[in-house]
C-alpha cells in the first residue's frame, strides 16, 4: 500500500472518531442550544476509562483490568455518562456563556486530574501498551488500520442513523423548542430541565464513546491529548459543517481535520527548523480564522439546518 493511502486511512480513522464527538456536540449545541465548552473533558473520560479497563495490569497503578475492548469502550461511555449527569445536574440552571465557562473549567480540571493522579492515569507519561483490539489477527499495520477504519466508520454510521431517527421525530422537535425559547416551551407543558439534561448527557456519552475508540486505535493515552484546543477544533468542525445538521457535523469533522493536518504538514515542510515550534500557533490561528470567516460569510455552515424537524411531517 502506498504511503499516501496509508496516511489517508490513518487520517480518516481520526477524522471519523472526531465526527462522533461533533455529532455529540451537535446534539447539545446544534439542536438544544447548550454551550458545552468542555467537550474534551468527556472525550478524555471515555479514553481514560477505556484505557484503565482494557489495559494490562501494572504493579504501581490502579486498574489495568485487561478486559475485552468492547467492555472497555462501554465502560468508558458509562463513565462519561455519569460525569455528564453530575455536571449536567450541577449546571442545569446555567445558560449560554455561564454554562460555557463552567464546562470549560470542568474540562481543564479533568485534564489536570489526568496529569496528576499518577496512580490511576500514569500522570504525565500517560498509560501505554493499551491493547489494540484484534491487532494480532492482522498481518500488517496497514491491514489493521483498514480494519479499524471499518470499525470506526461502522460505529459512526450507527451513531448517525440512530441520531437521525431520534432527532427527526417529536424528540428532535422538543430539543429545538428548548433551544428556541425555553419559557415558551415550559408554557406548553414541556419540562426544559429534563430535556436539557437528556441532550447534555447523551451528547457527552457519544464523546466518551469516541474517546474509547481513539484509545483503541492509538494504543496509549496521555494528558497532552486532551488540551482545550481539541474543544475548539470540535467546535470549528460543527460550525463549519453546519450546526443542527449531522451530515454537516461529519463533513465539518473531515474538512477541518484535513485543514489541520495539511497545515501541520505544510508548516513542518516550509518553515525553517528554528521556527518549527512556534509554527504550531499558525494552526490555531487558522482554526480561529475559519470559525470567524464561517460565522461572517456562511453562518449556517456548509450544510445548514433543515427547516422541518420530524420526518413524519414532511
Amino acid at each position: 500500500m502506498s504511503g499516501y493511502i496509508a496516511y489517508l486511512v490513518f487520517f480518516l480513522i481520526v477524522a471519523l472518531t472526531y465526527s462522533i464527538v461533533v455529532m455529540g456536540l451537535n446534539l447539545q449545541w446544534g439542536f438544544t442550544g447548550l454551550f458545552n465548552a468542555g467537550v474534551v473533558g468527556f472525550f478524555a473520560i471515555g479514553a481514560y476509562g477505556t484505557a484503565v479497563l482494557t489495559g494490562p495490569d501494572r504493579a504501581e497503578l490502579i486498574g489495568g483490568f485487561g478486559l475485552p475492548f468492547p467492555v472497555g469502550v462501554i465502560g468508558g461511555m458509562i463513565l462519561s455518562t455519569l460525569a455528564a449527569l453530575v455536571v449536567g445536574l450541577a449546571t442545569l440552571r446555567l445558560r449560554e456563556e455561564y454554562l460555557a465557562i463552567s464546562t470549560f473549567g470542568i474540562a481543564i480540571s479533568i485534564q489536570l486530574v489526568a496529569l496528576n493522579f499518577d496512580t490511576l492515569t500514569g500522570g504525565a507519561q500517560g498509560l501505554t501498551g493499551i491493547p489494540r483490539p484484534l491487532f494480532a489477527t492482522f498481518g500488517s499495520p496497514g491491514a489493521y488500520n483498514l480494519f479499524y477504519l471499518g470499525l470506526v466508520a461502522t460505529v459512526a454510521a450507527v451513531v448517525y442513523f440512530g441520531l437521525q431517527a431520534a432527532l427527526h421525530s417529536p424528540w428532535g422537535r422538543l430539543l429545538k423548542a428548548i433551544r428556541e425559547d425555553e419559557t415558551a416551551a415550559a408554557s406548553l407543558g414541556k419540562n426544559p430541565a429534563m430535556v436539557r439534561l437528556q441532550a447534555f448527557v447523551l451528547g457527552s456519552t457519544l464523546m466518551g464513546l469516541a474517546g474509547g475508540l481513539y484509545v483503541g486505535f492509538i494504543g496509549y493515552v496521555s494528558p497532552m491529548d486532551f488540551l482545550p484546543i481539541l474543544t475548539f477544533q470540535i467546535w470549528a468542525m460543527l460550525i463549519v459543517g453546519g450546526s443542527g445538521n449531522n451530515r454537516g457535523a461529519i463533513v465539518g469533522a473531515v474538512g477541518v481535520w484535513a485543514l489541520w493536518t495539511m497545515s501541520g504538514f505544510a508548516i513542518s515542510r516550509l518553515l525553517p527548523v528554528e521556527y518549527q515550534s512556534q509554527g504550531g500557533a499558525i494552526q490555531v490561528i487558522i482554526i480561529g480564522l475559519l470559525i470567524v470567516l464561517t460565522l461572517l460569510f456562511r453562518p449556517r455552515g456548509l450544510i445548514g439546518e433543515a427547516q422541518s424537524v420530524s420526518r413524519h411531517v414532511s
Binding site: 422537535r173 425559547d181 411531517v313
Partner: peptide
C-alpha cells in the same frame, strides 16, 4: 414563537 421551526411544527 419557536422562530427556527415551521408553524406546523
Amino acid at each position: 414563537p419557536f422562530g427556527g421551526m415551521t408553524v406546523l411544527e
